[in-house]
Design a protein around this nucleic acid. Sequence first.
DNA 1: GACGGGATCGCCGGGATAATTA
DNA 2: TCTAATTATCCCGGCGATCCCG
Lengths: 173, 173
Amino acid sequence: MKTIEVDEELYRYIARQTQHIGESASEILRRLLGMTPLNGEETYLSAYPETEESPVAGFVQTVELSELLNSSELAAKESAIDRFMLILSSLYQANPDAFTNATEIKGRKRIYFARTEEELRATGNTTKPKPVPGTPYWVISNTNTGRKRNIVGLLMTAMGYSAEFIEQVCEKI
Amino acid sequence: MKTIEVDEELYRYIARQTQHIGESASEILRRLLGMTPLNGEETYLSAYPETEESPVAGFVQTVELSELLNSSELAAKESAIDRFMLILSSLYQANPDAFTNATEIKGRKRIYFARTEEELRATGNTTKPKPVPGTPYWVISNTNTGRKRNIVGLLMTAMGYSAEFIEQVCEKI
DNA sequence: GACGGGATCGCCGGGATAATTA
DNA sequence: TCTAATTATCCCGGCGATCCCG
């Protein structure tokens, strides 16, 4: 479980949407947002301590991430760039620390990730930086699909994922 | 501020919906839930009783969508914009919740639906917002017929209608 | 902001392909 | 020089909004 801060009015709004006694905030929000309800198994997921340092060493595919592969959310993305961005978001969220370290990967001239738009602009002519949602990072986007796969591959390798899993992810882009 | 507990997956989903850096959980949720954003001149907002889910609640919605297609009411409309509006009204009445979720669809710069005229104005130069009758929503109207079809298509897809039915509806616009 | 509808045309984003560099 | 890797130009399709027409 995670905690988030919401303003008073929003809090009351959510509370008012309760449909049965004992319904949790998650259940209400999932319903209102049109997400699929949480089933039994997923509770098990949260058994992973959030503090868990780094699943790095080619370990724990983090169930969450392998779920992403067949999620409708990923499938719903029309373009390579959208799938690319969603995967980056998910990778960050799976392990912010490992992601942060891995962020140092770069090409011959261009750097691929930075905390600001300007940093990316500074290392190439037309990098077309984009913010990665839910993340303090920006990525370059002026790349063909092959390079997007490449970037994800480099990133995930640096994060410690197994080659097999990396390939599965890259195929989806 | 209040804190609420949400499950991991939901947390990640929310984080991913960030539209600009520094956007808070409240802001994101308000946007996704179709609430008005919290800001200075917000006193005006609270004038609306929060319980007022939709102005139309209580209406008997007898208009079956498939009936609409061959109805004289639709045929009587002279212009694409009128047929467009009638279809939107009917979609809302067929399923307010699904409509509300689907309302998030947008173009490259413009959002297509909002609860206020101003929100639509804010995302484009000349959107020409119009209220959708029988609905708490406004829609942009500065579009050609192709785009009106497009908007209905996107909306209905998000609402879960079949591609075949969607096509039948769009043809009528 | 006050005429409204919407076709037409200009612009932008995605990303394949051409150009460049090691 | 030839090849492989990387960059970024540039084409295409889609979106926005100007502006023409009823």
